[in-house]
């Protein structure tokens, strides 16, 4: 016998509705928790950071050219730390973006399945090496090596820290880029090759542009990693805040400053203590801005493709 439509008040119907509701609530809670945690982090940061500006004016904060919060005559020029952060990030990206993209093109378009099976785990190993190890690698191996070519290079410098950081980020960029390229439908690849295009032309004129929104995400992740990286710069770039973009000198990033002062014991509530949160907030702001830019690029590209 076929079943008819059930009575909306029947037990079976009720039970199913309650179950659906339960599942939906659990899923919602999981999704909401990550949002809540993000807000929690932002709130903790701002709670300590905002009182800082009762003691230090915005003008000093933005335009002072020194950052010496723990000295007798404290200066709070955040731009010193910002310049150090942007400099090391920029150096890292000049390594990670080209090499990561080329690696992805090779993995996705050129190499055989066998080679890929070997290469990918090796590449992922680059991301598995602890960052302290990278830090000492930069300080004790890369810097001396570079000093042979550039005698002026300081023993703590932005250049080798940035370069090593770049190598560290390659797998993040390459693996997401490769996924995006492999997701490009096969009929576009065949369409290009059928017109007599070489693999190289197909990769860079059709596949990369088609995968652009995914590739943009990969780059944004790379940028976020570079901005937030701490150990390598703390160890190899020195701990000297400096308003300069000279890669040969030592410098200090926002993150490196945070670990540096966190290791001393600053009294809670003191202005030095608050600077930690201020630096953290600025860092968060940068990551946020880059993520938003990435999202804008992505949605623009997606709109264009439609």
């Amino acid at each position: 016998m076929k079943e008819g439509f059930s009575d909306p008040k029947s037990f079976k119907r009720r039970a199913r509705e309650v179950k659906e509701l339960l599942i939906k609530s659990i899923l919602f809670c999981c999704a909401a928790s990550s949002v809540l945690i993000t807000f929690g982090v932002v709130w903790t940061l701002l709670k300590e950071a905002l009182p800082f500006f009762q003691e230090v004016s915005f003008g000093q904060f933005l335009f002072d050219t020194e950052w010496t919060p723990l000295f007798e005559d404290p200066k709070y020029g955040i731009m010193t730390l910002v310049s150090g952060t942007l400099l090391t990030t920029f150096i890292a990206l000049t390594v990670a973006i080209p090499l990561g993209t080329i690696t992805a093109v090779f993995l996705s378009e050129y190499c055989s399945a066998n080679v890929r099976e070997i290469l990918k785990p090796v590449l992922e190993l680059l991301a598995a090496v602890p960052t302290v190890v990278y830090g000492y690698f930069a300080l004790l191996f890369v810097t001396p090596l570079l000093q042979k070519i550039i005698p002026d290079l300081a023993s703590f410098n932005a250049l080798s820290a940035g370069l090593v950081m770049g190598v560290m980020i390659i797998p993040y960029v390459s693996s997401l880029t490769e996924d995006a390229m492999r997701a490009v439908p096969v009929y576009l690849r065949e369409g290009s090759l059928a017109l007599g295009a070489s693999n190289f032309q197909t990769s860079f004129k059709v596949i990369v542009p088609s995968a652009f929104s995914g590739i943009a995400s990969a780059y944004v992740l790379g940028i976020s990693r570079a901005l937030g990286e701490t150990m390598v710069v703390a160890i190899a770039a020195g701990l000297q805040p400096r308003l300069s973009f000279n890669p040969l000198e030592s410098t200090e990033t926002l993150t490196a400053y945070i670990v540096q002062v966190s290791m001393g014991d600053l009294p809670q509530g003191s202005i030095g203590y608050k600077t930690i949160y201020v630096a953290g907030s600025v860092l968060l702001l940068f990551t946020l801005v880059f993520n938003l830019i990435g999202q804008r690029i992505r949605s623009r590209v997606e709109k264009k493709a439609k």
Partner: peptide, 25 residues
């Protein structure tokens, strides 16, 4: 030359789609 079952224009302009084969050469 080949034309496929499913239309497969590249995500480029109309002009660039046609110019593609020439540029490739």
């Amino acid at each position: 030359g080949m034309v496929f079952q499913k239309p497969n224009p590249f995500p480029k302009s109309i002009f660039e789609n046609i110019a593609y084969g020439l540029r490739v050469r």
